[in-house]
Design a protein around this nucleic acid. Structure first.
Lengths: 144, 144
DNA sequence: TATATTTAAATTGTAAACAATCAAATTTTG
DNA sequence: CAAAATTTGATTGTTTACAATTTAAATATA
């Protein structure tokens, strides 16, 4: 018990979150490769599959990402024909992102992914719910 | 309740982990900037502050990172004079990484970081311990 | 109305992060 | 011992991720 204990890796809360996030995303990779998607592209499509249409800033709020990350990512998805990007007529500053038929079609293939990944992460229903709750509790209080 | 529920962002376990990890790392950034360190450099130094000496592969196992990430990062820390890298005499394949006096000196300044970040993340002691436990449970079962 | 401020997205530069591949050293095996 | 397999770290290429800056448009204020 010395004064440097707080700098030990094993006493960090952030590190297991960071490592865990990376390792789970890595589990997605082979399944996402089959759809020619990265993890970030996948979660961006999740939002579009539900909303059909959104803006860059709204997408950024949903995903905790900024335009520096989203702009090239959305251009990539546009080049694949999964979505379209066009300026709003009412407000020329905003870019409206709309999922295409091809983008919606990919949703069918994506249905396989959650069960495949789920079987990789061994966690009881209660533990999964608790983890979910704790993460959102942090997300809700951290941004001020 | 339709068949696409499993593709909703709000029903993902991975996404809150991913977002939470990013947001907490972001909280570290201003404090780490004061030490001219990135988060990954910081956790690499954490290992070195304890071990004084290690190898690239051992460091990779501790941090869940590979040589593609660590080699440039360690070269950067070497160029700052915080550590040295040299091939092992017994096994020329392995690179021995050793923290320097300047690297150890940085530990003193780093002592300020955990309390500063801790005050940003509002979580009870019990919740923090539960989150810690759940992450390590996943990390322990995910790699097979 | 003119000016200042705020907002939205894009751009630039730096640093992860990792898959895939490579080269060299070591270990295993036949 | 010699060939094959494994291990270690480096390299290459692609994609995040984000701070900081820029440009243009919209809104607020004087």
């Amino acid at each position: 018990m010395d004064k440097y204990d707080c700098l030990k890796l094993e006493n960090q809360l952030c590190f297991p979150l960071y490592a865990c996030s990376k390792e789970i995303v890595r589990k997605y990779t082979p399944f996402l490769n089959a759809l020619d998607l990265t993890y970030t592209q996948y979660i961006a499509l999740m939002v579009l599959w539900e909303k059909k249409e959104t803006t860059v800033s709204e997408l950024g709020r949903c995903l905790y990402l900024d335009s520096g990350t989203l702009t090239p990512l959305l251009k990539k998805l546009e080049s694949k024909g999964l979505l379209t990007r066009k300026r709003s007529a009412e407000d020329e500053r905003t870019v409206i992102v709309t999922v295409t038929d091809a983008g919606m079609a990919l949703r069918e293939k994506a249905l396989e992914i959650p069960p495949q990944v789920g079987s990789c992460v061994r966690l009881s229903k209660e533990d999964a719910e608790e983890l979910y709750r704790l993460c959102y509790q942090i997300l809700g209080t951290i941004s001020e």
